[in-house]
Design a protein around this nucleic acid. Structure first.
Length: 646
RNA sequence: GCGCCCGUAGCUCAGUUGGAUAGAGCGUCUGGCUACGAACCAGAAGGUCGGGUGUUCGAAUCACUCCGGGCGCACCA
């Protein structure tokens, strides 16, 4: 509701300024420094001061003088040197919230593709992958809440070197006897095997021949290595989908590299790139014999930097690099390749949603994917260089609009705090101990597995729930504990802004107090409890619309404290909209925490059930119900469920 | 060497894109449960926004510079 008035006020001032000075400019609104100043502040007079060569205060006066009535606004005041402070009509505002006016955002045209997770299918997922998937999934939820049409893709590199390395491990049981690994879970076995193979390569560089051979076998197909590669990748993808589903993360389609190869996506893109001179054949220097993209295409600063800066797209042996395939894939996402995958159902989630995977066999009656109008690639910031190359590829082909609509949704890595490394039994060098954090490494097997972390969180939450609800069954308590664990984890990954490095620390991640998911869940649970207790006392929820008109609202909202609480609760839409605009899920997390704080204040300040004044009691019950709804709705955007009790 | 990111309370981080007196959580110290559940609430202490110069009505935010840290810059992905 808040953002509707925000827009209305901004629009009214913009129109006024256009009429007064002939300046067409969007007007910004902000939160006043003090709540006593009003609900919205308009700093526009300051921004116009230079242009108009006038004192801000004078501009503010002129702007206000001819301003007609704005619906829902009770007063506008000039403050300080030229702030325009706007006050809402409290009664009307409350009544509008009660009637639920215009809360649904209308659908927007075009499809947004969000690609996230993208884990190499050769080992169990770790906390770094969790940040990617949680950020991506939450961004998807934010977009959908804002009325956008979104398709979720999870790209599977099932033919790459990482899979090949694990396959090489399986093919050499003499060197890597399977008995020497923990085998209760396939993805965990591969985790250890991958680390073992990687370290074996370090000591025996000649063994790298295995990798080459396996990659070659995978490409030609119809042999033991190719067979094994399929088995490994498919099993691991299922494991990853299972891990992510624990966190309520699902996908629409899994485009796989094997089909990009078989369906010759690259060959088509290659022809286009050659034809439109996006890449050229290098005849001399270190890149002799390769097809390369000049550095000037994707590096802003490099003035004809020469071959040093250029990026090899096709190797001298004729094989294509990952970036090359990525360009083809990106073209497909926009529907620019002139080719499509075939699709087969890969997995059906418990809620009935089907995730499809690409295949190279024609199928009938399958849905269509791709054809996006904009594309978000959720990839960590270390790969920004490669993302720049992909975008440069589109640009070189003349797809300027699509290049603009290709967004690298980047985020910083998750590292481990030195303390957590010690807890994991990892030996740290002296210099690592002094660092603020230590980088995770799949190759070294250095990291925290996603499922282990989730298990640990559930275990701890289970203890907490049990200590409070010994009367409930273990099953029910485990259900609540799971919701709490997921809430804690998702919130932890979302509370930081994207470009802040997370130094993962067990102590912090396992905390359920303060700025955490469980704190917010707790607020929602308590709101529900009030409403439940009402029924237990034999009363029923009043018909709010019948008992509260705008006069009653105005009377109740004269209380400054109540008004501020309600105002805070009504800002969910505004918070989500800002978060979408800035592409920053942490803004939503921050908001929901403030929302929970506001409710906790309300909870302590106003005994609802024992209120003797009928109008006030109805009003307080409505406030409780409104808070409950806002908390639930916003948590849903964060992918956090509210347990029955906790 | 070049490019990107970061430096804000003891610790971990926000700061609505240049706005009014810089905010949270944790930790520390005080106080509050025969309860709409204390996974909570109230209060206190804690700051040269890394240093400097500049831009203007106004800078944590923009520019330049220096210091300190991180990450990239493969015929790996």
């Amino acid at each position: 509701m808040f953002h509707i008035l925000e827009k209305r006020v901004a629009g009214a001032f913009a129109a006024r300024i256009a009429a007064l000075y002939g300046i067409e400019k969007p007007v910004q609104t902000e939160q006043p420094k003090e709540s006593s100043f009003g609900e919205l502040a308009v700093p526009t007079a300051f921004q116009l001061a230079r242009e108009l060569k006038k004192a801000p205060r004078a501009i503010a006066q002129e702007a206000m003088a001819g301003m007609g009535q704005i619906p829902g606004i009770s007063a506008i005041e000039i403050a300080g040197n030229g702030y325009l402070n706007v006050r809402f009509d409290r009664g009307e505002y409350g009544a509008a919230l009660l009637s639920g006016a215009a809360e649904r955002s209308q659908a927007q045209p075009g499809k947004i593709i969000v690609e996230h997770t993208n884990i190499n299918p050769n080992k169990a997922a770790h906390i770094g992958h969790l940040r990617n998937a949680i950020l991506g999934d939450t961004f998807v939820r934010m977009l959908r809440a804002a009325g956008r049409n979104v398709e979720v893709q999870n790209y599977i590199d099932n033919t790459g070197v990482q899979v090949a390395d694990v396959v090489a491990g399986f093919l050499h049981p003499d060197v890597f006897p399977l008995d020497s690994f923990r085998r209760e879970r396939f993805d965990y076995l591969c985790w250890d095997l991958y680390a073992a193979v990687s370290s074996y390569y370090e000591e025996h560089p000649e063994a790298l021949e295995w990798r080459k051979q396996v990659l070659h076998d995978i490409e030609s197909g119809g042999n033991a290595a190719a067979e094994k590669a399929h088995e490994v990748a498919d099993k691991i993808v299922h494991a990853h989908l299972g891990t992510m589903w624990r966190l309520d993360i699902a996908y629409d389609v899994l485009p796989r590299e094997s089909e990009i190869l078989h369906l010759k996506f690259w060959a088509t893109a290659f022809e286009l790139l050659k034809e439109r001179k996006g890449i050229y054949f290098e005849t001399e220097g270190k890149n002799k014999g390769c097809w390369v993209m000049p550095g000037s295409a994707f590096r802003s600063g490099s003035a004809e930097g020469g071959e040093e800066d250029s990026k090899v797209i096709v190797r001298s042996n004729g094989t294509v690099t990952y970036v090359g395939k990525d360009i083809a894939y990106q073209l497909w996402k926009f529907g620019l390749l002139g080719k499509d995958f075939y699709y087969g159902p890969w997995h059906t989630y418990p809620n009935g949603h089907v995730v499809w995977a690409s295949t190279d066999e024609p199928q009938s009656g399958t849905p269509s994917f791709g054809q996006g109008s904009s594309v978000y690639n959720v990839i960590d910031s270390r790969q920004s260089y490669l993302q720049d190359v992909v975008v440069a590829g589109l640009r070189a082909l003349g797809f300027e609009k699509q290049a603009e609509a290709s967004i690298h949704f980047s985020y910083e890595m998750v590292a481990l705090s030195p303390r957590t490394c010690v807890e994991l039994g990892l030996e740290l060098s002296e210099e690592d101990k002094k660092r603020a954090y230590v980088e995770v490494s799949g190759r070294k097997g250095l990291g925290v597995k996603a499922d282990d972390l989730i298990d640990k969180l559930i275990e701890k939450a289970f203890d907490e729930v049990n200590s409070r609800h010994a009367e409930e069954s273990a099953d029910k308590n485990r259900g609540a504990a799971t919701a709490i664990a997921v809430g804690a984890l998702r919130y932890f990954m979302l509370k930081y802004t994207r470009n802040s490095v997370i130094a993962f620390d067990f102590g912090e991640a396992l905390s359920f107090e303060g700025e955490t998911g469980p704190y917010v869940q707790y607020a929602a649970v308590r709101a529900r409890n009030i409403l439940r207790k009402l029924e237990e006392r034999g009363e029923s929820l009043p018909d709010f619309c019948a008992e509260l008109n705008s006069e009653a609202m105005a009377r109740q909202l004269k209380s400054e404290e109540c008004w501020q609480l309600l105002l805070a609760a009504s800002k969910a839409g505004s918070a989500i909209e800002r978060a979408v605009a800035s592409g920053e899920p942490s803004h939503v997390a921050r908001y929901v925490f403030q929302l929970a704080q506001a409710f906790s204040n309300f909870y302590h300040g106003y005994p609802v059930l024992t209120e003797s004044n009928r109008e006030k009691k109805v009003f307080l019950l409505w406030m409780t119900d409104y808070f409950r709804g806002q908390l639930e709705r916003t948590l849903e955007v964060l992918g956090i469920e509210v347990p029955e009790y906790m």
